[in-house]
Amino acid sequence: MSYPPYPVSQQPADSQPDYPAALSSLQHMDVDSLKEILNNEDKFDNFIQNLQQIKNLHEQKELIMASNKSLAEYNLSQEPLVKEQKAQLLEKFQAASSLAEKVKGLKAEIDNKSGKMTPDSLLILLEAACSEAEEESEEMVESFMSSQDNSLDEFLNMYKDKRKLAHMRRIKIDKMRELLARNNQQRRSDQVLSPVRQAPLPPRPRT
């Protein structure tokens, strides 16, 4: 996995010029040299450009420009990946939305038919809800990986809650399956122990 270039730190805009360093080079000049610098614009500009602080600013400017260029190139290189991840996230979101609608439709159908939930119906709803929670947790990971604005702590807290919800639903599903299997086994055992009596044969007609 590639990472963006590390940004170059910039000098604060309100930093004060280094006056002592600039004046130290003037202290060794005689009066004529100082007058020549003050009266000659080219020499004055040359003096300013040769100050160490000005040289440092030029170097820092070049570093910042190079860093910005590298960052822009990196962002462009990541654009296809970001588009692909967004498309996958949209597809998963649509699948999760479709699953949620199916769950709502199934619940409404069960409520209309019987007015209450049977164990088999509850198991189906739990399985659908568990799948929905797992899908949402995967979408959270995809969304976090494709975005640089999300907080890691916030993501971990939300992801932990979502996985905990899916885990609890999975436990309920396993318990419900166990209860249903036990009930079915008990029902079969009762049928073996208490066989249904056959109806008596009708009387024979008299000849």
Rank of each mutant, 00 (worst) to 15 (best):
A129R: 11
G105L: 12
F47H: 02
D120P: 04
L23G: 02
I173R: 08
S9L: 08
E135W: 05
A129K: 13
Q148S: 14
R169I: 15
P202M: 06
K92F: 07
S131P: 03
P7E: 07
A96H: 06
L23C: 03
S147Q: 07
S25C: 01
L152D: 02
N112A: 15
E62P: 01
P4T: 00
S194M: 09
E127N: 08
Q52K: 02
P4A: 03
D14F: 02
E109M: 09
R163I: 15
R206V: 15
L76P: 05
Q85A: 13
N68A: 00
Q11P: 04
S77C: 06
E138C: 06
E79A: 10
I124W: 03
S146F: 07
D161S: 13
K69W: 05
L180V: 08
Q10H: 05
E136F: 07
D18E: 07
E134N: 11
L152N: 05
E79W: 06
M29V: 00
I64G: 04
A166L: 09
S25H: 11
D153I: 13
H167V: 08
S194I: 12
Q185C: 07
D149N: 05
I124S: 11
E59W: 01
M117E: 14
Q10K: 14
A133N: 10
E109F: 08
N183P: 02
K92A: 11
Q94V: 09
L165C: 05
V103K: 07
Y3L: 09
D161I: 09
F93Y: 10
G105S: 15
A181Y: 08
N75V: 11
V196T: 11
E101T: 12
D18A: 04
L106W: 05
E132S: 09
Y74A: 08
S15Q: 14
Q52A: 03
S143I: 03
L179T: 12
E109S: 14
P17S: 00
N150V: 09
E36G: 01
K55T: 06
K162G: 13
L51H: 00
I171F: 02
Q85I: 09
Q53C: 00
K102N: 13
Q148H: 08
N184Q: 15
S143V: 09
R182W: 02
M158S: 10
A128D: 14
N183R: 10
I48T: 00
I124G: 05
S9A: 11
S97K: 14
K104A: 12
Y19A: 07
E139W: 01
S189F: 09
S98T: 15
S9N: 07
K43A: 01
S137G: 10
N40E: 04
S24I: 00
I110W: 04
K35I: 00
K35F: 02
E91C: 04
E101Q: 11
S146M: 13
N184T: 13
E135S: 12
D153V: 12
L125A: 06
R170C: 08
K86I: 14
H167F: 13
M140V: 05
L165N: 13
R170W: 03
R187P: 01
L57W: 01
